[in-house]
Design a protein around this nucleic acid. Sequence first.
DNA 1: CCCTGCGTCCTCTCTCAGAGAACACAAATC
DNA 2: GATTTGTGTTCTCTGAGAGAGGACGCAGGG
Lengths: 257, 257
Amino acid sequence: MTDNTGASEFVKSDQTMFSIIECIHQEDEMGVTELADAVDFSKSAVHKHLKTLEEHGYVVNNGGRYQLGLKLLTLGGHIRDRNAFCRCARSTVEDLAEESNQMASFILRDRTHGVFVFIENDRYGLRKPVPLGNRYVIHQNAAGKAILAELPDETVADIIEETNLPAETDNTITDAAELRTELEEIREQRYATSTGERIEDIQSIAAAVKSPDSDQIGAISITGPADHLSQDTVHTECAELVREAANELELRMRYVE
Amino acid sequence: MTDNTGASEFVKSDQTMFSIIECIHQEDEMGVTELADAVDFSKSAVHKHLKTLEEHGYVVNNGGRYQLGLKLLTLGGHIRDRNAFCRCARSTVEDLAEESNQMASFILRDRTHGVFVFIENDRYGLRKPVPLGNRYVIHQNAAGKAILAELPDETVADIIEETNLPAETDNTITDAAELRTELEEIREQRYATSTGERIEDIQSIAAAVKSPDSDQIGAISITGPADHLSQDTVHTECAELVREAANELELRMRYVE
DNA sequence: CCCTGCGTCCTCTCTCAGAGAACACAAATC
DNA sequence: GATTTGTGTTCTCTGAGAGAGGACGCAGGG
């Protein structure tokens, strides 16, 4: 009666389970009480979820401290290495890393975010390596902008509205109009650049790649410390390198499929 | 009354959710009806789970076909790149790949299974690349045996009992006694080898690595086609390479911590 | 040696997961 | 172009089970 809030659109237990997983993910490892506090559930409830997660290998119990299990790496690796788009991208990124002698990466869009799917050569030059699968709001670097430039205007509008273009550094683009004019420019020159927009003093050059079958769009990029990449080559050699890599990848995918 | 099966030890909704995830994982992509059939639940139930999964990015809906989402790569990558053991292992594996000019990898144990955590150089020589996070029953290759050799006897006994040493190829060790004598040998010579035990005609040489703080044990290995690795170097140069790499890693970890 | 913290295990209740059928929409079929 | 048969999605209703709250056992530290 009162209000018919009986059945929600989602499975509540799943959602509490995700809260638990994401909490552990943030903190690396947590105890039951700590977790129960963080997700605002009873200890018994959290404990039952943890036991279930542990049973399936998604979480490991290290003497009362719980941390995420390797099963997640298995799932994550699989979706990467089984997807034709990613599989093709891999060697292109490897080659690009070698040619450019910089960190090279392949980025895919996950709704409003960019996700690093392949990272090559991140040992050199960068202060700290980019973790595999790392996410950021998509407008915050060259690869993301390259992808945005290939999306229909309305999708871009949706993303802008949903994210509100949060800043990560002082140089992040936070103004919608500014972003749109830059996307226009990127569409024309077929590559994107960014300087310190996601991480201070890090510069990046990227080009978008469209998958032939599905409507997936990714980007290939090279990244390095801003003072490492000589500024006159960024818009010439570097731009040409990523554009070529993107072309090569698009072409190769057409024949593999 | 009848039987008091009211409260199970686990959260049932979580378990059905895992079934769904693991089903999609196997099939790469699935529809609702197909899934409902496979996990033996009603379409409505499966659908609600899928919507929940989608909401959180663990699954993406590609026009009615559901597949695993990049969120899983984010979680998986994170547990790898945030773990000190793994982070240290990375460059060791890279170096070993370069020195040996073979595929090099870092393997961790997840209960009864081995999991590929780092794979370097898998482009060359192997028929098909090893996907990141790939799992196998731990006795089925050199890396796994190297790890087993470092475990207490009772743990080994548990693993043998639980898995029953399934065969993957004709060469897989399936006899417990045979395995135990080989583990003894591995302990003495400080490295393990395998030939076609997990994949036909693939040979591998591995050495165990113990993490100083936690009781985690991993292994470093090099792998290649059996006819590629000259047989007299396997037990000399190759063995020495992996043993050195393992030593170097153990040493380095002691100072990083 | 008690005391305070933890992880774990009860037990009870009211919520919400799941079945089943109806609906909307597409692509094949005739 | 009407019909059939699939799909994904949405509804409603009910009893299984998720979650709260408390008891228990065990550790570490005052």
